[in-house]
Design a protein around this nucleic acid. Structure first.
Lengths: 192, 192
DNA sequence: GTCTATAGCGCGATAGAC
DNA sequence: GTCTATCGCGCTATAGAC
């Protein structure tokens, strides 16, 4: 193995596999082949698949929400913050050779097949993303840049679902350019 | 079996399983237990899983797009048409005891694991939904009910992704009421 | 911490009787 | 058209040597 930290290499491989094909299509065997280690060694680091998923979701949420926080707390104007936020999803889609979706977007589809801790982690990820979007939307409304009527929480839910769904749909047709165009169109609606 | 038509019963069971848990978590064994028939008998009607998925997607697309067409061609005003369209997704979510998602929304997440015909069917479903939304959006703009700037195709893509993603996210929290509220919020943005 | 080997199960799919 | 029986494989997980 090239990487110093086996645990990290396992998580990296598992994440990539799930972002492409989903958790139910990801196996210890696939990870094994991806990083050149035996299945039993993976079990040494993550005894069960549920434990692996739980650790993976925690790492992903911490990393992704960290990026979101640095956007939300930046000095950009609200519209630019939304653009940057959408850019995170566009980047996911365009990194690597095959289209990858948001880890938690994939797991959302397979939610009923996940263990309790993993499912709870996915729900938390959704909630925390929406909470951050609410902040940006209210800031934008206070500054006169956004002009939506109604509850900021609903607009936030709308934008989050749009991006999570948009990533999945864009993998079928259009890719990251299409997701980008959709995000810009959404901004137009918010700015009147 | 209660149903007269075995083929239909198989498709019904497979569809329900996939809408809850995804295609990779659905098996001939699960269908067998759901309708009280042996695995081998299912293979008699659908020799391979890919063939089953292909037939299922065709049936689902014909049914769903039929409902969409009757909405699009109705005498409702454009905003009411959009409400009725979103209602199709809300109904999917609330029918039965557990939350079901759109069949093709689920398969979109698992797209890379599908056979060629099934994947093509999912793509076609997306395209045809968006084409119908474009008609409603242009009608609404012509009548002065909608006020979006930009390309109707992008707004259509936005709304479709929002609903497909919204169904998946709403299963994690909020259910069909939340999806309904999101759809109403989206309409507010379109109507200014 | 990584390995070989294996248990035990569920999977998709097929053969052949009725 | 449905059944029993079975094949061969991939899966998660464990035991135990090194």
């Amino acid at each position: 193995m090239i990487k110093g930290d086996t645990k990290t290499a396992i998580l990296d491989a598992a994440q990539e596999l799930i972002q492409r094909s989903g958790a139910n299509a990801m196996s210890y065997q696939h990870i094994s082949e991806a990083i050149g280690i035996r299945k039993a060694s993976i079990h040494h680091h993550f005894p069960t698949k549920d434990a692996l998923l739980d650790a993976l979701i925690r790492r992903y949420a911490a990393y992704f929400l960290g990026l979101v926080d640095s956007i939300v707390e930046s000095k950009k104007d609200p519209a630019s913050k939304l653009r940057a936020y959408a850019g995170l999803f566009e980047a996911t889609l365009s990194e690597g050779k095959q289209d990858k979706a948001c880890l938690c977007g994939m797991l959302g589809a397979e939610l009923s097949t996940l263990g309790g801790p993993a499912a709870a982690g996915v729900r938390r990820f959704y909630r925390e993303n929406e909470a951050r979007l609410v902040r940006v939307l209210e800031e934008g409304k206070a500054q006169g840049q956004f002009h939506y009527k109604g509850d900021a929480k609903l607009v936030a839910a709308m934008i989050f679902s749009l991006l999570e769904g948009g990533v999945l749909v864009a993998r079928a047709e259009g890719g990251h350019q299409r997701l980008h165009a959709m995000a810009e169109q959404t901004l137009k609606l918010l700015q009147r």
